[in-house]
């Protein structure tokens, strides 16, 4: 993963606030955002929308061999979440017991540290999800 600061900075609206896009032509919503509608292509009409952060677990796993920088978190849960508005996204599911995870369970977005660039680099915040109580 790129350690560049700008890589994170330019995605802050999406990573903090789930700002995606919608094609006014066909009505499909996109998160992560797309600037080109795969259905309408050039004739699409893309606008920004903010997703609610409410959704359901579509699939999930508990990662025992962690990604770089997440050794302290293992094992950690990651899931593909179906947002109520339609799109699916990949996110960690936090503050839960592994046995509480299941396909179809309701989740909502939370604001967390996603990755920290060592002792002196920037802190990259963003969405994660937790089970809706």
């Amino acid at each position: 993963m790129s350690k560049g600061v700008a890589v994170h900075w330019r995605l802050i609206p999406q990573r903090y606030n789930l700002i995606g896009t919608e094609c006014k032509g066909c009505g499909q919503k996109f998160f992560p955002p797309r600037q080109l509608c795969p259905n309408c292509r050039r004739s699409g009409n893309i606008t920004e929308i903010t997703f609610s952060g409410e959704g359901k677990i579509y699939s999930y796993t508990l990662i025992h061999v962690p990604s770089e920088g997440l050794g302290f978190m293992k094992p950690y849960a990651i899931g593909i979440i179906r947002l109520d508005e339609g799109p699916l996204l990949t996110a960690q599911i936090v503050d839960c017991k592994p046995e509480d995870l299941a396909i179809g369970k309701r989740v909502n977005s939370v604001f967390r540290k996603v990755i920290v660039d060592g002792d002196s680099g920037i802190i990259r915040y963003g969405y994660k999800f937790k089970l809706t109580e």
């Binding site: 993963m1 890589v7 995605l11 990573r15 992560p32 990662i63 061999v65 962690p66 990604s67 997440l70 978190m73 950690y76 990651i78 996204l89 990949t90 996110a91 960690q92 996603v114 990755i115 990259r124 963003g126 994660k128």
Partner: peptide
């Protein structure tokens, strides 16, 4: 940007 950043392997 949307899988690896989130900790996916």
């Amino acid at each position: 940007e949307w899988e690896a950043f989130k900790g996916a392997t």
